[in-house]
Design a protein around this nucleic acid. Structure first.
Length: 228
DNA sequence: CCAGACGTTGTT
DNA sequence: GTCTGG
DNA sequence: CCAGACGTTGTT
DNA sequence: GTCTGG
């Protein structure tokens, strides 16, 4: 699965990499090394008109539009790619509200007794990539409106197997257009994009247990340590 | 028709 | 809101 | 995901 | 054990 990740890049760099604009120039963003559920994260969406891509901040953990209160989001940080087209909470977001979630690494833990040992997974060249995401808008009382999102998961590849049997869906660049196209509403056209990323294009390394604590959000979280 | 669920992961 | 179960 | 809290009443 | 907060 995916419950913590890294986006250690500036907003300007993300805008350039995804040809996405923060149209209103109102997003405040600093490079992040330890992003956790319920926090605001950057996503890339695309409109029908002119296919313009925009950068937005939204809460990680999807709140279905019909939810009585936002607490359900704690269980909705991921969506299974295999069933996303059928599940009530994700069906509509999957058809009509897909997004990219920029990242440059993610963390997974291996339990050893009482210890939780974190690994960082990234691309071989440490380049930027994108998780497949879906989003939703929730309207609460008093005119409160919250946009939130989930990151899709799939079976893990060989590199991850002994840490976890699930991994986030990483989209290759040539899949961005179709995933973001609001005019594509066909599950059979989309589902093939949702497969485990090539293990040979990724690397993994142990990181400090500092990353376990959400409040630690600095480069040290992503620094490799020798232990395997 | 109404009532009730609607989710994932990991662990047992 | 929408779907499933009864 | 992990860490940390997890309760009520009445009084100040 | 289970839920919430980050």
């Amino acid at each position: 699965m995916c419950g913590r990740f890294r986006v250690a890049r500036s907003k300007e760099l993300l805008e350039a990499a995804f040809s996405a604009e923060d149209a209103l120039e109102e997003i405040e963003w600093t490079p992040r090394y330890n992003v956790a559920p319920a926090q605001d994260i950057l996503v890339v969406r695309q409109g029908s008109l002119g296919k313009v891509r925009r950068l937005s901040l939204m809460r990680w953990g999807l709140i279905p539009s019909w939810a009585a209160d936002p607490s359900i989001a704690f269980k909705m940080i991921n969506a299974r790619a295999e069933t996303i087209a059928e599940k009530t909470a994700f069906k509509e977001p999957f058809r009509f509200r897909r997004c990219l979630v920029p990242a440059d690494g993610f963390y997974e833990w291996r339990r050893e007794g009482k210890q939780k040992l974190p690994f960082c997974f990234s691309l071989l060249d440490e380049s930027l990539f994108a998780f497949a995401g879906v989003w939703e808008r929730w309207k609460g009382p008093k005119g409160i409106s919250i946009e939130s999102c989930s990151i899709l998961t799939t079976a893990s590849n060989e590199l991850m197997q002994d840490v976890h049997d699930r991994m986030p869906v990483i989209l290759p660049q040539d899949a961005y257009d179709r995933w973001l196209d609001p005019d594509c509403v066909s599950a059979p056209d989309l589902q093939p994009l949702l497969k485990p990323y090539s293990a040979s294009a990724m690397r993994r390394f142990r990181v400090s247990q500092r990353v376990n604590h959400v409040k630690n959000d600095d480069a040290e979280c992503a620094a490799g340590i020798d232990a395997m």
